[in-house]
Simulated assay, not measured.
Amino acid sequence: MRFLSLAGRRLAAALPALIIILAGLFLLLQLAPGDTVDALVAQVGGSDPTMIEELRRHYALDQSTSVRLGDYLWRLLHLDLGHSAIYGKPVADVIVERLPATLLLMGSSLALAFAAGMALGVIAARRVNRWPDTLISTLGLIFYATPSFWFGLMGIFVFAVYLGWLPAGGFGSIGADPHGLSLVLDIAWHLTLPTLTLALIFLAIYLRIMRASMLEVATLDFVRTARAKGLSDTAVVTRHILRNALLPMVTLLGLQAGTMLGGSVVVECVFALPGLGRLAYESVMQRDLNTLLGVVFVSALLVIVINFVVDLLYVRLDPRINGGR
């Protein structure tokens, strides 16, 4: 019951946040110069004023901002994301085509950053103030301070152009039609460089948090009690220190979900991946308001779902948390 109560409260708090995000973005986009009709006219090289007026009436751009916002929120309640003027089909179809690439990129990057950051953080904490700690901390600082697009460009130059080990971009081999395991391996091969590029900066954050958390938990009373009982150092670390040190890592996992989605925009553009990040960039450039709002809607849902799962996982990891609070 406590678990279900917490889940219900988290979902109830997420719905107003989602509406505020979409309404705020809709109003902000009205301040940007140009609209969908301007982008369409620019693509065809110009048009007469009568045709432009008809297009604005067709896309309801002749109505007031408040009316269009109300109409959009009403359609959203019916899960209607609208029609993309640039791609010529429903926004939901466009997003469904692009979503798998982003989910795979985010999932693989998050898993790599979390696992490697946790392992390196534990090693640094166990060898504090010695050369492994110095080396890992220095690498973490370098990864955190270096922009992700620079890692991507250098990865393309070294591993794709110079060495020829990995593809420079794309989501699959051009002209090939793999199936089954061959398809999985082909996608994994193309996602290797993008995953490393997106994961490095988050790996640096996780290893620093894990190191600091391990060192803090190691000084608490229950750890000293466990050592006084005669438990081995490995048992103390795995049974007592590690589980409690993971709590800040799990919290950070949910907080970094939105940041990782933002980072995927840069990575997908660098590696020409057909994901939501690149779709958002193309929608901004082409003033496709419906598609951009649809991307933001799905992205916000992803962040809310990830934070929801993290909250529930946190309750399982820390029994002290009461769902009634």
Rank of each mutant, 00 (worst) to 15 (best):
F114I: 06
I20S: 08
T134W: 13
E97P: 01
A85K: 00
V265S: 02
A204R: 03
L220D: 15
A218C: 09
V266E: 11
H240A: 10
V298I: 10
H179A: 15
V128N: 15
R325K: 14
L166A: 12
N322L: 12
F149I: 01
R287V: 02
Y206E: 06
A300V: 02
H240E: 11
L153F: 09
I174N: 10
F271D: 04
F222N: 05
R224H: 14
L120N: 02
V315Y: 11
G324C: 08
F159T: 01
L61W: 00
I306G: 02
Q43K: 11
I52G: 02
A226M: 03
D186V: 00
A212N: 10
V310S: 05
M1Y: 11
G275K: 09
R243S: 05
V128S: 15
G121Q: 08
P90R: 01
A145H: 08
L76N: 00
M118S: 12
V184C: 04
E216H: 06
L139V: 05
V94F: 06
A111Y: 07
L104Q: 14
A160S: 10
W189K: 10
A160N: 02
L203D: 05
V184R: 08
I123D: 12
H83G: 09
L166G: 07
S137Y: 05
N244R: 06
L15K: 07
V94P: 00
L6D: 09
L110K: 09
A60D: 13
L31E: 12
L135H: 04
T225R: 10
M51L: 15
N244F: 01
I95Y: 00
L73M: 05
I123V: 11
T225S: 07
D38V: 05
L4K: 12
L242D: 11
L183T: 13
V266L: 13
E282D: 15
V265W: 02
Q63E: 10
S148C: 04
A199E: 09
L220I: 13
R211T: 01
I20R: 05
R325L: 13
V305S: 12
L61C: 00
W74L: 14
F171Y: 14
R2A: 15
D80P: 00
F3P: 03
A235S: 15
I20E: 10
T65E: 14
L273G: 04
Y59H: 01
D221M: 05
S148F: 09
I142W: 13
L292T: 07
F143L: 12
L31T: 10
G323D: 03
L135I: 08
G24H: 04
T65C: 08
P274D: 09
Y144V: 15
G34W: 03
V250K: 11
L112K: 07
L276F: 05
R127E: 15
D311N: 06
L104M: 13
D318W: 00
Q286K: 14
H58T: 13
V236Q: 03
D38G: 00
T259I: 15
L139E: 08
P90K: 01
